[in-house]
Design a protein around this nucleic acid. Structure first.
Lengths: 196, 196
DNA sequence: CTCGAATGAGACAATCTTGTATCGTTCGAG
DNA sequence: CTCGAACGATACAAGATTGTCTCATTCGAG
């Protein structure tokens, strides 16, 4: 018997590539039969919601280490943030579609789970603000959403072959923290463009 | 006769809310009949691709002012970047789904359009690097993808009611440029958490 | 006003998807 | 080894979606 987690992750993998994949496509992508899929999950909607719940569980696992940092210092916060980004990278690729699927969005249980998750992340980000490691003039909600946006962007960049999987962890973290503006504003160096 | 642009924008609005909306739902959302929709676009796939082409056109319109800045200075570059973000915000909300829909992604014409678009944006971002206004250690492709990620994140934040439409322009721009790390690292101010 | 093009409403068959049931087979615990 | 649970394959009906068609109506240019 295939474990439920493998099955849901396989379904998520297929659905991440095509949000509107049919049960036949999902079963074929997993490598199982449509009969088994229908036996496990009564309807396609039920499968979708199960994947969404699985997504919440996985992301909750990524967020767990953050709770220990409530009485941490700046160094511990930075380490936890980096750990969070690295842990979230594959999750964003696999489960990102759940936040955009109308079927999933309509599920109150999913919305409630996301709300709990958001509040947990917001507490962590607010801690970063109090520690002086995150800007105090940005809404924590925006920091959380923008982090997910960067994670999604990295996943798309890898999908399109424009980014290497190895570098996206660093890219997301440095963009999230430092942005794309050079840290030390150069006084006035023309630096003419090199000839092609 | 309803103009083609209005029709496509209406379809995009419906599809942005539900990627797998049927022709009946799309027609109802636009306020027209399914017959008219089918007369204009032979198949649903054709409609999807037409929306995608429209998306490319609109984004091309947002990118047009950037070409004039090829021989610009730092100030002009900053202004063009801000203008770009503001122009791109509604487009990201309306047409963001095109970059994630399997049907659209499979269209060679769309991929070619996106490629041309990417190269145009990349040239602009590379100009920013030469002007010293953007970090030279980040791949231009990542800057472009991350900007779209932030635009998407802002749109989702508004959709969920966690962000106000008025502020997202500033949020995207400041996150893209400066990140979420405080600009001036505070020496050692404890700043105890305020009582709840 | 007149006429033609575009529209809305509806019917129709073909196809796809889904949910359910049945059959024989495989696989692992006892 | 034995047996029962889970599996793959297949068939079936019900429903939804799509693409095409017809017909009456509306709307605007001339």
């Amino acid at each position: 018997m295939v474990h439920e987690e493998e099955l849901l992750d396989g379904a998520a993998r297929v659905l991440a590539g095509d949000h509107s994949a049919s049960m036949v496509q999902i079963a074929a992508g997993i490598g199982t039969s449509r009969a088994t899929l229908s036996r496990r999950y009564a309807t396609r909607e039920a499968l979708l919601k199960a994947v969404a719940v699985r997504a919440i569980d996985v992301v909750d696992g990524c967020l767990a280490p953050l709770d220990l940092a409530q009485n941490a210092d700046a160094t511990a916060f930075d380490a936890a943030l980096e750990e969070l980004v690295v842990a979230l990278l594959p999750a964003a690729h696999l489960y990102g579609f759940t936040s955009r699927d109308a079927t999933v969005l309509a599920d109150p249980a999913f919305r409630a789970g996301v709300d709990r998750q958001d509040h947990r992340a917001l507490a962590f980000l607010a801690l970063g603000q109090r520690l002086g490691r995150l800007r105090a003039d940005l809404p924590p909600y925006w920091m959380w959403y923008s982090l997910w946006g960067l994670l999604d962007a990295a996943a798309e960049g890898v999908r399109d072959g424009h980014l290497a999987p190895r570098q996206i962890g660093h890219l997301v973290l440095t963009s999230f923290l430092s942005g794309t503006r050079p840290s030390a504003p150069p006084p006035a160096r023309p630096q003419a463009a090199a000839a092609p």
